[in-house]
Amino acid sequence: MLRKLENYYKPSSLQEALRLADENTEGAKLIAGGTAVMAAKNNEVKTLIDIKNTGTDKIIKDENGVRAGATVTIASLLESNEIKNYCGGLIYEAAYYIASTPLRNMITLGGNIIQTFPWSDLPAALLLCGAELSVASKNNIRKLSYINAVKKHPSLAISKNEIVTEVLFPDLTSYTGKFTKFSQTNFDYAILDAGVIAKIKDGAFEDIRFAVSAAGSLPQLLSESAALLKGAPADDKGAAAKAARHAASETIFTNDKRVSIEYKKEILPALFERLIERVVKENKGGN
């Protein structure tokens, strides 16, 4: 409950939202799905700017890739054929196990990737595909790669007067991606999230990327581990297992009250091995 809340704005255009964001940098917070704001016990927030009606809720495909508005809900992502078909279903799989049906109707793409809770599922998938954010302010629009956004927490990479309007999932036509969420129950925070995307040419990995989240406080790209597989034959299970093992040592883990770091280290290789296997399998099926 926001005890000190004084203003609730629901602008009907992006311009108006940007103006309000510009005028209310002190004690103001953007709200879209609302799930993070409502769950917080924040006594500092005086103003909420609801950007649900700013028209940033479209999903379109163009020559650069798939563009999804920041206020697109998780449910809408899952209903979109563009997202289903994107990169072997990478984003679809990452979105599929987020929270529950009613919450998926509320949680937004923008909210999920900007809050970037340790257990958030989409951020790792965004890292894998090299997503790019459009960040608008009153007089400007800038592009921010998601990789840069999560070097520190995204909230630090975006100023108070800025609004993320769109996520570009760059064209990855020749890639296949798979994502897995490991959790105790279905409607649960991830114990570990892992994703792999790869481009396989002539039976070998021309490019491959690993990402993990729910391990540390921020999602991580595991470039070293993925590099071990670059050029390796796609069916080389030994190489895959080696890279998967390396992923456990490359990942930075922080404490999780539910399970030990050792446990997470123990299971991460299995998750990556299975992901690689699925990527390879689908790639074969696709040819």
Partner: peptide
């Protein structure tokens, strides 16, 4: 009161949502 039990589910514009997580002002 935190969107995790679903007892407060209502349809908002045709979609089920947790009404405990929606500001009335919105």
């Amino acid at each position: 009161y935190e969107g995790s039990c679903g007892a407060c589910t209502v349809l908002v514009n045709g979609r089920p949502m947790n009404s405990c997580m929606i500001p009335a002002a919105s």
